[in-house]
Design a protein around this nucleic acid. Structure first.
Lengths: 147, 147
DNA sequence: TCCAGATTTAGACTTAATCTAATTTCACTA
DNA sequence: TAGTGAAATTAGATTAAGTCTAAATCTGGA
């Protein structure tokens, strides 16, 4: 289970001659403890509870820095960016009722078949977003899906 | 091959007591002829070449109206909304070099297997976005992909 | 042609995100 | 432990996508 860790961030900071500020640590710690997919603004609010003077610019700078270093994933949902500390390959499920975004393990939907694209595109990665009702919002536990 | 048509729009307009204005027609005609996935702004610019006084509000209103009527799909890519007149079920391919968005037919990547979600989510639909290099940007015609 | 209601328009407003310039802070070295 | 210089932070200005508003204008049926 790969995931954003304080340790990885510290190593990265040392290697690149960067600085480990309390704001960065607070952002990293918040993301580490996150099981949902917070927006930049949610992170801004959470970090300001600990460091009341933290500016949006710092939050955005740090998120972009973590993103470029591959330490968080940026997930766009409905036009707003959300940030995901889960670094294992995975998909997303978005509830149409409550808007929550959940991670779906790669292996929980089974192996996908080999395939070939006829348009001569070189596929390097892909995202899958499933939509529907989450367990809380679903009226009954329908589970099977045809992909 | 399902696709946005002027005829469907006319029928819809009649049924709901709405009005078929030249601006709406221009937007629909532009989308019909589109094989890429224009942004609202690209549609705004194109429509203004024919109707120079068309406002952004009209473009957004019409796009939302078509979207809610299921006549166009809204595709978010990199945080900006793009509009897709292709109503057949399909996936998308985004080129990381030129940013173009191409449609990928459902059947061109073969049937996907049945699967079950363990989290009790009810999956109603899903989007797949593949990323890589398109045929124009790819250095050589690598075609095979492991999904 | 008339008319009511739908639509359009320009521009103000909102929200997410980036940029800027001045100030502050980190972390290394002596 | 103090000094130093680069890196980072800050508040606020700016940009861009999209929504809202109120007044003016059109559409299409009678």
């Amino acid at each position: 289970m790969k995931r954003l860790t304080q340790q990885k961030v510290e190593t990265m900071v040392r290697e690149r001659g960067l600085k480990l500020t309390p704001q960065r640590q607070a952002i990293v710690e918040f993301l580490q403890g996150c099981m949902n997919h917070p927006t930049a603004d949610e992170i801004f609010v959470a970090v300001n509870e600990r460091f009341p003077m933290t500016s949006r610019a710092t939050v955005y700078n740090t998120l972009n820095w973590l993103k470029n270093a591959g330490q968080v994933l940026e997930v766009f949902e409905g036009g707003v960016a959300r940030f995901d500390p889960n670094l294992d390959p995975h998909y997303h499920f978005v509830c149409r009722a409550c808007g929550s975004v959940e991670d779906i393990d790669l292996d929980s939907i089974g192996p996908l078949p080999h395939c070939t694209l006829p348009g001569r595109q070189t596929v390097e990665s892909f995202d899958i977003t499933m939509r529907g009702l989450c367990a809380k919002c679903a009226p009954r536990p329908t589970v099977s899906v045809i992909l």
